[in-house]
């Protein structure tokens, strides 16, 4: 496998632009969690001309709804959820300055175009490796939308969370090209 590129959050345009679909990265620093319900609320804030409760500039959103933490643990199992459900909200998030997303599964054409326009990167974590991923999470606190439970926005500090660059800011898309060498007959 390719050499692992270390990424430290927050991300700059330069960080994003050097990544290519198929690269392997390890993410360290602060990232924010958010799923369907939280994204809906964030985008609704903007529609009402209110500021979002978190500043997403340069940040990575991790699409995850963790299991509850056991006593003494920062977080429970926390693998990625399927990203396409966030597609309707993603161009707006990128417009607001979000630089990265961690999830699993393919994205829409609109999202991929917005990633090129605003310079964003989409990383795939391993779905179903949730207990292993939890080990990369050092701290976890709820930032907003606590009433959403697992779907609340959490601030996570992660260390060496290994992901694959699935879609890059030039439109490179591993979900399309990755399967080509293995497609038979």
């Amino acid at each position: 496998m390719a050499e692992i590129i270390k990424l430290k959050t927050p991300l700059t345009d330069e960080d994003v632009m050097k990544l290519k679909a198929g690269d392997v990265v390890s993410v360290s620093g602060v990232i924010y969690t958010g799923r369907d319900a939280a994204h809906k609320r964030l985008v609704e804030c903007l529609e009402r001309n209110e500021p979002m409760p978190i500043d997403v500039k340069g940040q990575i959103m991790y699409y995850v709804g963790p299991s509850p933490a056991k006593p003494g643990q920062p977080i429970g199992s926390c693998g990625p959820t399927t990203s396409y459900r966030m597609d309707p909200y993603t161009p707006t998030m990128l417009e607001q300055g979000m630089k990265g997303m961690i999830g699993k599964g393919p994205r829409s054409k609109e999202v991929i175009e917005a990633m090129q326009k605003y310079k964003g990167v989409y990383l795939a974590a391993i779905g179903g490796a949730a207990a292993v991923i939890a080990k990369a999470v050092k701290t976890c606190e709820v930032i907003t939308y606590e009433d959403l439970g697992a779907e609340a926005i959490h601030k996570l500090e992660v260390e060496d969370l290994v992901c694959f660059v699935a879609v890059d800011a030039q439109g490179g898309n591993l979900y399309e090209t990755g399967r080509l060498p293995y497609k038979k007959d």
């Binding site: 299991s67 429970g76 199992s77 391993i126 490796a129």
Partner: peptide, 20 residues
């Protein structure tokens, strides 16, 4: 990693996947 995950989940009695 998926094979490692089932070992960690069993050892630590953690859910295999956060989506239970």
């Amino acid at each position: 990693e998926v094979c490692e995950n089932y070992k960690v989940a069993a050892e630590e009695q953690m859910p295999l996947c956060q989506d239970t």
